[in-house]
Amino acid sequence: MDWDKLRIFHAVAEAGSFTRAGDILHLSQSAVSRQISSLEESLATKLFHRHARGLILTEQGELLFRTAHDVFAKLATVEGQLKDAKEKPSGELKVTTTVGLGSSWLTPRIREFLELYPDITVNLILADRELDLSMREADVAIRLRQPVQADLIQRRLLTVHYRIYGSPDYLKRYGMPMTPDEIGGHRLIVYGEEAPSVISDVNWLLDVGTDRPGARRPVLKVNNIYGLLLAVESGLGIGALPDYIVHGNSNLVQVLPDVPAPSFDAFFVYPEELRNSKRVTIFRDFLIRKVSEWRF
């Protein structure tokens, strides 16, 4: 099997079209199409169903793609290990975490890391779904729950606490609640049904200070932590937010600080095969240092 054709096939399968794959590979659409046709001819099987809106893998194409994806993931691992054999850490480090933690806490600290290690390129992938580290969708992750996969190395990074917040404008207009039961008289902002959650009762705010769980109705539901933050900042109402997203935010005021609130641990995670990677080690140590400097 021709490796060049296999590389092009893998790119097309991931992109879903000859044109997008060509842009990634810096080849023309016609050149990509010819290479795929040649590969199909050599294998005597169709790898794609052609449609006006794109390409869909055939059953045989799916089989080849899974195998090729695994091969290229292993090659990427070996390439990283070879680069790590150098005295000076270099190469790409793919880091993934949630949109909220990544945008509010991690991204502002990447500059310092890159100033320390200018030969490393960070590819930061922010997504509320968990990327598959074993398939090298990312090299390392900061997970807001403890991983259950046996083949992942994990280290507890920090403990995150929820607190109740409102904006100065909102509290000036509606007043500061002084007791838990007064929460019921305020406009509450909570998570939507499809919001990713690492705590069992993500909308615990609705039941603060009441003996009738589920009786309160929020003014807004939003399925993203950053959206919830912006809604509270805008003065729409009161919401529960994790401390990593509000630290140093002068547009928010903590409400009822003595009310018991959920907390959870976040973990730094990477696959076993990257145990000896210098890039992973220095990034892990950098994060541990930054967490110790900035207490949540």
Rank of each mutant, 00 (worst) to 15 (best):
K5Q: 15
L6I: 15
I8Y: 05
F9N: 11
G16N: 04
G16T: 01
R20Y: 03
G22H: 01
D23A: 12
L27C: 09
S28H: 13
S28F: 01
S30D: 14
Q35I: 04
L39Y: 03
E41H: 13
H51Q: 12
A52K: 15
L55E: 04
H69F: 03
T77Y: 02
V78S: 14
K83E: 11
K86H: 15
K88Y: 11
G91D: 02
E92Q: 06
T97A: 04
L116P: 08
Y117N: 02
V122K: 00
A127V: 13
A127M: 11
S134M: 15
R136A: 14
V140Q: 05
Q146L: 01
P147Y: 05
Q149V: 05
A150F: 04
A150G: 00
I153V: 13
L157Y: 01
L158H: 11
T159C: 09
T159H: 10
Y162H: 13
P168Y: 00
P177V: 07
P177S: 05
T179Q: 13
H186T: 10
R187N: 14
L188I: 15
Y191N: 13
A195R: 05
P196V: 05
I199N: 12
L206K: 10
P213N: 10
G214P: 11
N224F: 08
L228I: 11
L228W: 02
L236P: 10
L236I: 07
L241V: 09
L241R: 06
P242G: 05
P242Q: 10
I245T: 00
G248V: 05
L252R: 07
D265L: 01
F267G: 08
F268W: 05
R275K: 15
N276F: 04
S277Y: 08
I282W: 04
E293W: 09
